[in-house]
Amino acid sequence: MRPVSRWIIYLTLVVALLCHLFPWGGRGIILRPVFMFVVLLYWLLRSPHLCNIGTAWFAGLLVDLATGSLLGQHALSFTLAAFVGVSYQRRLVLFNAWHLMGYVFLIFLLERVLLLLLKLFAGNENPGWHFFLPILTGILLWQSMIFVFGTITRPKSR
């Protein structure tokens, strides 16, 4: 695992924001992954000295502004989920690919549950089970992130 440049991280986060801004329409929108959180979690688990809970908070704020939801909603859910993610970050070296995927799945789930709770408290209607579909597409995006930028777990050869 090579150390990464700070600029690569910011560039990918900007690309993720662009994906949020993309004019999504039709039925497929319920499948849309939370791009920002997937990219963020990857960098958070890989190099937490460059991308940490503060970055998560700021990224969440940008998503809030871009989606027009209550300011701080995504920021809070990203912050809390990133905290759980980063707390076990040092143990990830011992994980294999499947364990890692399960771990990431749980954190995505946590992010969704937190956001759902915040939305319900803010007075939105119950969105139903579709709300959790982005987790699955998020996992796919996660795997492609690993494919492009390299794995987080221990290399196979050792």
Partner: peptide
Amino acid sequence: PFSRMMLYSALSIVMMAA
């Protein structure tokens, strides 16, 4: 991480209220 989490959570809660 805990102190960071507390700081940013408090910030976002204040923003939501505002």
